[in-house]
């Protein structure tokens, strides 16, 4: 979806240049736009809907987080259980983002640099986790490694614990964030083709060197973009992690799970304080995304 097509910044450029220049008759512009009253009604409706459904919930997170002042806010964050949740979330995100970045590059290379039968099927399969409910993403790993699962008894005999422990949380997070890096790289690398790498290899470079010196510089912004989105989702994943975590306070609770527990215990302010960290991460991610999109010159259509 995120193809670099000939995006024409049409209304902007036209609108700006139409007024000062004389040779463009004003009537010319009129026939392709709507009366001012229609225009401002549409804008007002859009702003109202966005304000009600997007801005208010976001603002509410921060308002509630600071509702009891700065001290209460900090107290909620330095609580030992909160700190343990933050540590676990950072650890899980680091492992799953690193894994999915490496694997995303490998998969994008295999898919885009060679011609083979079944390519579009493979791309669909890489995207598959996007179509799976988070709850089901957790459930499949319980069925694999849980006490009643396919490998459960063997794992128990050998003293391994995956479900209700951090390996299960990492697995579920890797599943949920599986497509993020690959799907940002694949359209771009398809468009760039493989002629530059072919030239490098023909001139004597090894495949690895061609990847490092040619491919990687070509895709660095798309890669960073994919990593960013992957990280935001990894830190914020709730449903899948909730199913495999077991909710042990201070041990297997990630930040989203800690938020849930606090909220269900009516510790609203503390809950929103932890939530505000994730909301802040979301805002930062979006800001970086806007900057990167300007650099990439394209827009990602779907996540």
């Amino acid at each position: 979806m995120s193809a670099v097509t000939d995006t024409m910044p049409f209304p902007r450029e036209q609108g700006r240049s139409a007024r000062p220049t004389v040779h463009t008759p004003p009537r010319h512009e009129d026939i392709r736009t709507e009366p001012a009253i229609v225009k401002w009604t549409v804008i007002a409706l859009a702003a109202l809907f966005m304000g009600l459904f997007i801005v208010l919930p976001l603002a509410n997170v921060f308002a509630q987080a600071f509702s009891k002042g700065w001290d209460a806010y900090v107290a909620a964050l330095v609580d030992p259980d909160a700190l343990a949740a933050i540590r676990l979330t950072l650890f899980v995100a680091a492992v799953s983002v690193a894994t999915n970045t490496v694997m995303g590059l490998v998969m994008a290379w295999a898919i885009t640099k060679f011609n083979f039968a079944g390519k579009s099927l493979l791309i669909t399969l890489v995207d598959l986790p996007f179509s799976v409910s988070p709850v089901i993403s957790g459930l499949v790993f319980v069925l694999m490694f849980g006490a009643q699962g396919y490998f459960g008894p063997w794992l128990i005999d050998n003293g391994w614990k995956i479900i209700f422990a951090w390996p299960g949380i990492v697995l579920a997070t890797v599943f949920v964030t599986f497509p993020f890096v690959a799907r940002e790289l694949i359209p771009l690398m398809q468009e760039q083709g493989s002629s530059e790498e072919e030239a490098a290899v023909t001139l004597g470079a090894s495949g690895w060197r061609a990847f490092l010196k040619v491919t990687l510089p070509n895709v660095k912004w798309a890669l960073l973009y994919g990593v960013l989105l992957c990280n935001a989702r990894a830190m914020g994943e709730f449903g899948a992690v909730s199913v495999v975590s077991g909710h042990v306070r201070g041990e297997t609770n990630t930040m989203p799970l800690h938020i849930e527990i606090l909220y269900n215990e009516y510790q609203f302010q503390a809950s929103f304080a932890v939530a505000s960290l994730l909301a802040f991460l979301a805002v930062v991610t979006l800001f970086a995304k806007t900057v990167l999109e300007a650099r990439l010159g394209s827009r990602s259509g779907r996540h």
Partner: peptide
Amino acid sequence: KRLLDALVDIPFALPTAVAGIALTNL
């Protein structure tokens, strides 16, 4: 306009649990 455009992606970026408690509280 640019701010409005960027805000459209908030539901993608905001963790679902955070959105959940924010909407409930609202």
